[in-house]
Write a protein that binds this DNA or RNA. Structure first.
Length: 398
RNA sequence: GGGGAGAUGCCCGAGUGGCCAAUGGGAACAGACUGUAAAUCUGUCAGCGAAAGCUUUCGCAGGUUCGAAUCCUGCUCUCCCCA
């Protein structure tokens, strides 16, 4: 593969490649690049948003390079201030370890384990003495740290910045020094931190890493960045049907962007699909199938499409709704209080919320809208309960 | 170290003794319309209860009062100005 072809792969779905010339040099010299990605173990699920940078890492692996994952078990206890207008809550060591375990398994759905090395940054950051920390701090200035726009903004808005937060970029930069990374991949919001890595590596007399920045994937709401705390996410472990359905719910404007960041479909083809006179819905169906195929299989993608058309486009009952047993304690003298059932099954936030849903006409039994709260047990069993647009369960007697 | 301001529901933000489970906006959820898109209209939005109603909420802990988000005391946290 020529250098240009390799660069085309590297550049897809990035906003900026800083130090690209260094990457080219090192590839020409035949080096196996050490490509760093910091992993913040604050979540249990790998979302499509997270997958963007993981897939970029995989691109490098495909070109023969080594992925260096830094598990931020130490830094997670500080909390990355990136994009946050508030001080993050600090995680306990147990939380971190639990998340790490859940998440590393999911990484290998994307990454090649043969070409992946995992580091824990507590191994070096946790060993530093206070004197080491002070020496580190002496290599950076307050003014430079405060250049960072989160900090600038917070200062301007009279919001607090805790001292430990300004150390976060330094910690992350030190990771790069420690593992001698050639390239660091990061989301756009990591630019500042990644650049600190470059500076720090030079300070320590090492060649500076290049930085590859990927845009942040917008969530299914089409507004905010995809994140687990906002609930606008698709997890790579979601079922094919969920993945498909959630993808179909994204606003039209972000379809192209999702193609670029979440699939390998050539951009020329994407432009074609989104051209004049084309129905964006068709592009979205293709997108949804591509995504399902990537994390499940082509067959699953086809099945998910069929399910989607049956259930939502034609509004037919799903055949394979999950079966759920009606808890016996909810049955009193043969009667069941439906709000309590819906609340109890977690289909609504609370019994009160379930009641509101029934009143709003959002609840149906075998396709028939329900208006009553109390029902005979016999009138419920064997029926498909629908709550809202896309929650279905089949009720079974306990 | 000195002086000043402030802490209200997911967020912003009204409310200064009873009419406050707390105005308004945003977010979210649901219904109609759709393409599980957008826009629009409507409804809901502390918990429990079929309901009457009950319980818990206005930084934290006490107190005054028949009655407190509102008054008093102490505490915690944050911001601003000066050093």
């Amino acid at each position: 593969m020529t250098i240009d072809e390799q660069l085309k792969i590297i550049r897809r779905g990035t906003t900026e490649v800083i130090g690209e010339a260094d990457i080219v040099d090192r590839i020409k010299k035949g080096q196996t690049l050490r490509v760093k990605l910091g992993v913040d173990p604050t979540a249990k699920d790998v979302t499509l948003g997270w997958a963007v940078v993981l897939r970029k890492l995989r691109d490098f692996q495909k070109l023969g390079h080594t992925a260096c994952l830094i598990i931020g078990d130490f830094t997670a206890q500080i909390g990355d201030p990136s994009g946050k207008s508030k001080t993050r809550k600090q995680l306990t060591r147990e939380d971190v370890l639990e998340n790490v375990e859940a998440v590393t398994k999911q990484f290998y759905r994307i990454l090649d384990p043969e070409k992946t090395v995992i580091y824990f940054n507590a191994d070096w950051l946790g060993m530093m003495s206070f004197q080491d920390v002070i020496m580190l701090c002496s290599r950076y200035t307050v003014a430079r740290i405060l250049e960072r726009d989160d900090f600038t903004k917070r200062l301007a808005e009279n919001r607090p910045i805790a001292m430990h937060e300004i150390l976060y970029p330094l910690c992350q930069g030190l990771d790069s020094v420690e593992i001698d990374s050639d390239v660091e991949i990061g989301g756009n919001d990591q630019k500042f931190n990644n650049l600190v890595g470059r500076t720090l590596m030079e300070q320590y007399g090492k060649p500076a890493q290049a930085v590859v920045l990927c845009p942040l994937l917008v969530g299914t709401d089409g507004k905010e960045k995809m994140s687990q705390s906002l609930g606008n996410y698709i997890s790579i472990t979601d079922t094919p049907n969920d993945m498909f359905g959630k993808t179909m719910s994204i606003p039209d404007e972000i379809i192209g962007n999702w193609f670029e960041l979440c699939t390998d479909v050539p951009m020329e083809e994407v432009a074609e699909m989104l051209g004049e006179g084309k129905n964006p819905r068709d592009a979205k169906v293709r997108l949804a199938k591509e995504i399902v195929a990537l994390y499940h299989s082509v067959e699953d993608a086809d099945a998910a499409e069929r399910y989607f058309i049956e259930t939502f486009s034609k509004k037919v009952q799903p055949v394979d709704a999950e079966e759920v047993v009606i808890p016996s304690e909810l049955v009193v003298e043969g009667m069941v209080n439906l709000p309590a059932l819906i609340g109890g099954l977690g289909l609504a936030k609370s019994n009160g919320a379930a009641k509101d849903l029934i009143t709003a006409g959002a609840v149906a039994l075998d396709g028939e809208k329900v208006t009553e709260f109390r029902h005979e047990l016999s009138a419920l069993t064997g029926k498909v309960l629908k709550v809202g647009k896309h929650k279905f369960v089949k009720l079974i007697e306990g």
